[in-house]
Design a protein around this nucleic acid. Sequence first.
DNA 1: CGTTGGTTTGATGGAGATCAAGCCTCGTGG
DNA 2: CCACGAGGCTTGATCTCCATCAAACCAACG
Lengths: 233, 233
Amino acid sequence: MVTMRNPLACEACPVRDRAACSALDDNQRHELESIGRTVRLKRGEVLFHAGEEAPASATLISGALKISSLDAEGTERILSLVHPAGFVGEMFAPVAHHDVTAIADSILCLFPADRYEKVVDRFPRLAKALLRRSSEDLFASRELIDLMGRRTALQRVAGFLKAMADAASSSPCHPAQRFDLPLTRGEMAGMLGLTIETVSRQLTRLEKDAVIAREGARGIRLNDAAQLEALAA
Amino acid sequence: MVTMRNPLACEACPVRDRAACSALDDNQRHELESIGRTVRLKRGEVLFHAGEEAPASATLISGALKISSLDAEGTERILSLVHPAGFVGEMFAPVAHHDVTAIADSILCLFPADRYEKVVDRFPRLAKALLRRSSEDLFASRELIDLMGRRTALQRVAGFLKAMADAASSSPCHPAQRFDLPLTRGEMAGMLGLTIETVSRQLTRLEKDAVIAREGARGIRLNDAAQLEALAA
DNA sequence: CGTTGGTTTGATGGAGATCAAGCCTCGTGG
DNA sequence: CCACGAGGCTTGATCTCCATCAAACCAACG
C-alpha cells in the first residue's frame, strides 16, 4: 500500500461530481482535502482487515474493491463490490466487520476515522450525502440478495453477468457490450454461493448457446443481452 | 391499514431511546411528532407497494415487517426483516423498489416523504442518526448475504434460527432460549433460497438431533445453542 | 363439519458439489 | 530463448443433496 502525503487533487478527481464529497462547496471540500491522503493499492492488497480497530473511511477513485469475510472452512464469501465513487468504512463500528481488498489496481482517498467524523458533524450536507450513498449500498446489497435467492446456477451466473455489464457501462440504462470481469472464477463462486466448476460450466453453456462470447479468461462480449436477462429470470 | 390522526405519543414510545428520532431534543422531536401519525397494520397488510410513487418514511414501533420482491415466476424473495426501532422508506428514490408488508400486527410512525426530508435537512442530528441506522441495515444485509452464501440447507436453516434467536433476545449477547418464528415456512424458504419442503425437513432433522424442540408450528426452543452455531458453520 | 392455509412426510429425478485430470497464460530463472 | 512452474481455468465422472411431484395431516375458522 503506497501512501502519498501530497494533497488530494480534488480539482482533477474523476469522481468529484459523484462521490459523497461532491455535496460540499469549495471551502468545505478544501477542509476535507486537508485531512485526507491518496492511497494506491495493487490488486490483492488489503485495505482493512476484519477485527482491525478504528478503521478509516475512504472513497474509491478508480479501480475496484471487494468486501468479504472468511467462513470457518476458510472459503471466502464476497459481500459487496465497491465501484469508483463508492465509500467504504464503518463510521459507527469500533472494529471492522469485514475484509476490504483491492480486486484491481486502485486509487482512493483515505481519511482517519476520528477526523472524518468531526467533519461530518460540521457539514450536514456531507452527512446527507453519505446517507444517500449508504441507501444506494443498501439497495445494491438487496439486489445481491435477490440474485443469490435464485435457485438455479444458470440464473445466478446470468444475473451476475447482467449486473457486471450494467456496472461496466458508462450510460446507466444500457449494459456494456463488452467488458472484463473484475473477479476470478473463485471470487464469482464465493459471491454467488456456487463452486468454481459450476461457474465455469455455466459460462461455457452461455457461450455454447451464443448468449455471450468469451475473450480470454476475463473478457465477455454480449451477443444477446435480452436473452441474458431472460435467463436471469 | 388504520391511520390515527391523534398525536404520536413519543413520551410513551417503547422505542423512543433506540429509534432514529432519539437523537433529537424535545423541541425537535415535537416538531417531528407534528408531521407524523400512527399507523396500525395487521399481519399481511401492505405498507408500500413496489413501484409506488413517493413512498413515505416510517419507524416501526412494534411488530415486524418484511421487505420483499416478486420474481418473474411469482415466488416471493425476502430481502430484509425490520424489527422495532427500524426505519423503512427510501428517501432518495422517486419510486419504491420493494414491497413492505407486515408479518405481525404492527404499529408504526408514518411521515410524508417531502416533509420528513425537510426536517432531516433542518436537524443534522437526525441525518446522522439515519446514517447510523442505514449502516446497521447494511450490516444486517451483509449478514443475510453471508447466510445465503452457505452451500448446504442445514447451514442456512441453522444460521437463520441462530439469527432469529439473537433478534428475539432482550440481551444483545445471548440468544433467546425460546421464541416464535415470525415467518411461515414459505417465507423462510423465500429468504434462504430454499423450498418449503427443504426448510421443513431441516427443522425436523434439527429436532431429531435434539438441537431444538418445536412447540407448535412456530415455537422454537433451543436445546443446544452451541451445536446450532456449529451447524451454521 | 367442511374448508382453507400452513405444515409434514414420502418417492423420485436432476442439478450441482466433489474428486480428479488436463490445459492455458504468464512470469521467472536457467 | 526456452523450460519450467504456479495460478487460474476448463472438462469429465461420480455421487449427494435438494427441488419437484404427490399426498396426508393439522389447526383455525366460518
